[in-house]
């Protein structure tokens, strides 16, 4: 399991991988927050609950990252650890996740660039029995 920042001239992409979709979604979120803060400096002091549904896994990924950006602004929090479950339900794909973090501290968290949005650009979700990969481009 890991995240990777993908090269692009104007913006950047983020890719999360792992043994299953849940891990890949969590890693993509870590990748996105790694652009904004030094993850190792962010303590998991507070937890936000996130529940989402979407028609497709691609839509679920964009919604997941978008929701974390919204919570960052609304609550003033940044996150470093994520715990995710992804299941297919009757109304499409569902995600239940927890994001762990703390209020942004510019002195400790080494702020980077603010991510404006997760986009459908380059969005890809791949999943086999023992490996999953999710990615999309972020607007900075």
């Amino acid at each position: 399991m890991a995240y990777e920042i993908l090269e692009h001239t104007a913006d950047v992409g983020v890719r999360g991988t792992g043994p299953d979709l849940a891990t890949a979604f969590a890693e993509a979120a870590r990748g996105m927050f790694s652009l904004m803060v030094a993850l190792e400096a962010v303590a998991p002091m507070r937890t936000m609950q996130v529940d989402l549904t979407a028609d497709s896994l691609e839509g679920l990924l964009v919604a997941w990252l978008g929701e974390l950006l919204a919570q960052k602004d609304i609550e003033g929090l940044v996150f470093s650890r994520f715990c995710v479950a992804v299941v297919q339900g009757e109304r499409g794909w569902m995600l239940r996740g927890q994001a762990h973090g703390e209020p942004l501290d510019v002195h400790r968290h080494q702020p980077g660039v603010e991510v404006k949005a997760a986009t459908y650009y380059g969005v890809r979700v791949e999943c086999t029995n023992d490996h999953a990969m999710v990615q999309c481009v972020l607007d900075l």
Binding site: A70, D73, I74, G76, P111, V113, E114, K116, L140
Partner: peptide, 17 residues
């Protein structure tokens, strides 16, 4: 409402990037 909530603290801020 979410869009408005996100903005409460951000009117008159420059942003980054």
């Amino acid at each position: 409402v979410k869009a408005k909530q996100r903005q409460f603290r951000q009117v008159g801020t420059l942003g980054s990037g």
